[in-house]
Design a protein around this nucleic acid. Structure first.
Length: 490
RNA sequence: GGCGCUAUGGUGCAACGGUUAGCACGCGGCCCUUUCAAGGCUGAAAUACGGGUUCGAUUCCCGUUAGCGCUACCA
């Protein structure tokens, strides 16, 4: 890469049906880096594994990326449609002598068992040895011809140098030198003709002129193999940036056991994309100072690979929720309106007027409610009564605030007093209620709390008088009268 | 097993040889108060362990331990 060139990065997930939070963070870092540098982000689907090569498994990833607001400039490209390139590259490596045909039968990986088996057998030898080369490495041409005649399908392996070291630069982990003796003769092209990850990733990154490979640290150990391929192909390796992994609360890799692990599930739960982004950005990266709440433009402005940490991070849902609360409450309400609209539509509560004639009311109401929300679902949850007359009284709220025996009588008086109000605003309601409390010799809080339950059905809600104004006189009076029997019944 | 990476409160990050080790989430308390939030103040809480190097180590080096990753004809 020449210094005048703008960086080109890529996000290259394999199709798993959904976007994992770890993948989302990798995508985010790539995106932030590209935006910050004025570079280009490509999306590439790594579907060379036939079992994962299903179109429907890609959709979930695209949907999740769009939800996150991560847009790519080129792609998506599908490796499954570029197969010829990989075999051509493998043939070139074979022809150059940097690779060789291997006729061994594939040793299928079976998880921990295989590893244990390998340990178990040959206790005396083989233990603690360096990477062993496949016997096919040194086949004579006659032997090779014989194998071919037998019709044994060949894979192409890389002929790793037995000596020397392989070097590469990692923007996060620094310069790295690995002993070639530690690197086995890995497979480039499977006997099926399909490439392995090591090959396809390099061929594509060369072809797509990728300048910075930003990916999970789980790829760090295999990077030397890829550098070897770059060299065999006569290409300059990119700069690597391996970002630490995201772990579950038990410090193991994030998985279903830890609950929600796909970004789609957070979208459904009512998290805001920007809150999720901000939270994710801080998992393994910091701006250098103590800034945490950073709007997206600030994230883009401040993002740098030098701020990426080398230690694995644990996904902390409580902090995610805190971020969501911040993003629900701090930005201008207008930004929130579309999300609330979607939520209301989902619950079948949406009225078109709120987008037109009553837009001001809608904005004001959302503004009032959001001061005590944590998730978007709260708007149709405890705040349902702001948007619908069809709501229920929370049993706990009733038990707590409709307990006083004088309440039926008091509430009737209060309702009448409110109904007689010539003006309906915060102060008028406030004064009317306090007047009743004073003349009846009770604390205003008694009436305030009882009224809140009557008009919104909940013990937890925004300040009462503002709520009354937003709901309007007619509704408040109607709801108070409707609640009277229930209050009497307690 | 081999190779590698990492190691600051429960969690996420600061401090990149000299600070009373800072911030945020979470937790406790107080203030505010009309419920609940938000906000303000405040408390408890950390340099994994052992050796070096240095006038001085969270910081540099070595070892130990622990966690994680890789070690597939998965990606």
């Amino acid at each position: 890469m020449t210094s005048t060139e703008k960086p080109r990065v890529r996000f290259a997930p394999s199709p798993t049906g959904f976007l994992h939070v770890g993948g989302a963070r990798t995508a985010l870092f790539n995106w932030l880096f590209a935006k910050h540098e004025g570079g280009t982000l490509l999306l590439r689907i790594e579907d060379t594994d036939v079992e994962r090569n299903k179109p429907e498994l890609v959709d979930g990833i695209l949907v999740a990326l769009r939800w996150l607001g991560i847009e790519w400039d080129e792609g998506p490209f599908f490796q499954s449609q570029r197969i010829e390139m990989y075999s051509a590259a493998a043939e070139r490596i074979l022809a150059s002598g940097a690779g060789y045909a291997c006729y061994c039968k594939p040793a299928a990986y079976t998880g921990g068992d295989a590893a244990e088996e390998r340990e178990g057998e040959g206790d005396d030898e083989g233990k603690g040895t360096k990477a062993v080369a496949c016997p096919c490495r040194d086949l004579t041409s006659e032997q090779r011809v014989a194998k071919e005649k037998e019709g044994i399908p060949a894979a192409i392996r890389f002929r790793t140098p037995r000596t020397g070291t392989t070097h590469f630069e990692d923007a996060v982990f620094g310069p790295r030198d690995v002993q070639n003796a530690e690197i086995e003769d890995f497979v480039l092209l499977r006997s099926s003709g399909l490439p392995t990850y090591q090959l396809s990733v390099v061929v594509d990154d060369i072809d797509m002129r990728i300048t910075h490979v930003i990916r999970g640290a789980d790829h760090l150990s295999n990077t030397p193999k890829q550098v070897l391929i770059y060299e065999a192909l006569g290409a300059e390796p990119p700069i690597f940036a391996h970002v630490p992994l995201i772990l579950g609360p038990d410090r193991t890799r994030l998985s279903k056991r830890h609950g929600a692990t796909s970004v789609g599930s957070y979208a459904e739960e009512g998290f805001l994309p920007e809150a999720f982004r901000n939270f994710l950005a801080l998992l393994g990266w910091s701006s250098g100072d103590d800034s945490e709440f950073m709007r997206t433009n600030e994230l883009v402005e401040r993002f740098a690979l030098s701020g990426v940490s080398r230690t694995n991070a644990i996904f902390d849902r409580a902090k995610l929720e805190w971020f969501n609360t911040q993003y629900l409450q701090k930005p201008p309400v207008e930004e929130l309106l579309p999300y609330v609209e979607m939520e209301l539509k989902r619950a079948g509560l949406w009225k078109e007027a709120w987008a037109t004639t009553d837009r001001a009311w809608f904005a004001h109401t959302v503004d009032l409610i959001r001061s005590r929300t944590r998730l978007l679902g709260d708007f149709i949850g405890w705040a349902r009564a702001f948007f619908s007359d069809d709501f229920e009284y929370d049993p706990e709220a009733r038990a707590k605030f409709w307990k006083d025996e004088k309440l039926p009588e008091l509430m009737l008086k209060l309702t009448d007093a409110l109904e007689g109000l010539p003006e309906w605003n915060h102060d008028a309601c406030d004064a009317a209620l306090r007047a009743v409390a004073t003349s009846e010799g009770v604390k205003a809080g008694l009436l305030i709390n009882a009224t809140r339950v009557a008009i919104v059905g909940r013990a937890v809600a925004p300040p009462l008088f503002e709520t009354m104004v937003v709901l309007g006189k007619d509704r408040v009076i109607a709801r108070l009268r409707r609640a009277l029997p229930a209050i009497s019944a307690r």
